[in-house]
Structure formats: structure tokens, C-alpha cells
């Protein structure tokens, strides 16, 4: 066991959209930083973009955490989108069928544009 770090930064793009930049690992133990960033969204936010450009590692616990985040976003009638995933993690989203609920885009600009569509 070694110590890994999950870092999240929430950047507001406009009144309705925020981008959560995820760096490091996404595992079941990443709940606090991910939910803290999501907590910045507020009531008016209609779209959350998860930027995984800085993602190092994700396991099945991380997939479970994303399902939980998706549930919370759906409850608030918010879209959840993802960008910056490498091919390997795109495949994992496909395998777990998360891609059917979380729109995947290559770039942040594409994800933000899709959020507004």
C-alpha cells in the first residue's frame, strides 16, 4: 500500500456549467474530494463536466463512486459529462455501460458545447 492522492478542482464556466478537474486516482476512497467539488455546483448548475485529463488510475470502486455522483446529478436534473479520458478508460466506461449515462467527449470544449445543446 502506498499513499495516493485524489485532487479535484471545480471551475465555473458559466451560470449553468461547472468543470470538475480530477487528478490522480479515482477509487472508493476518493469520495470526499469528488463530492466536495460537486458540492460547489449549486442549484442553478445544469451540467457537470468531469475532466479526466489528469487521471492516473481508476478501479471498480471509482466506477461505483461515479455511479453515486450520477445519481446525485440526476436527482438535481443535471447532465453529467466527461472529457479527457484516454482510450483505456473510455473502454472501461463502455464495459461498465457508464457511457450510456455520462456523455463522453474528447475535449473540454466539446463537452461544454454538448452541455449547452
Amino acid at each position: 500500500m502506498t499513499t495516493a492522492t485524489t485532487t479535484t478542482t471545480a471551475d465555473r464556466i458559466d451560470e449553468w456549467t461547472i468543470v470538475i478537474r480530477v487528478r490522480g486516482d479515482v477509487t472508493a476512497a476518493s469520495e470526499q474530494p469528488l463530492m466536495a467539488a460537486y458540492g460547489q455546483a449549486g442549484d442553478k448548475t445544469r451540467a457537470i463536466v468531469l475532466d479526466f485529463t489528469g487521471l492516473d488510475y481508476m478501479n471498480s470502486g471509482g466506477i461505483g463512486l461515479l455511479v453515486t455522483l450520477l445519481v446525485r446529478a440526476n436527482r438535481q436534473k443535471q447532465k453529467l459529462l466527461a472529457c479527457g479520458l484516454n482510450e483505456h478508460y473510455k473502454q472501461i466506461f463502455e464495459l461498465t455501460r457508464l457511457d450510456e449515462a455520462i456523455g463522453i467527449h474528447d475535449t473540454e470544449a466539446a463537452a461544454v458545447a454538448a452541455a449547452k445543446a
Partner: peptide, 19 residues
């Protein structure tokens, strides 16, 4: 708006063969 929390995870980086 930054949150940074150290967490304990197994050190497995090249995990393509695990999926």
C-alpha cells in the same frame, strides 16, 4: 475551490491487463 485528500490505494498504475 480545491479539495485535496490523501487516500490509501494499491499502487497499480499499468492496469490495462486487469480490466
Amino acid at each position: 475551490m480545491t479539495s485535496k485528500t490523501p487516500v490509501e490505494t494499491p499502487k497499480v498504475r499499468d492496469d490495462a491487463a486487469n480490466w
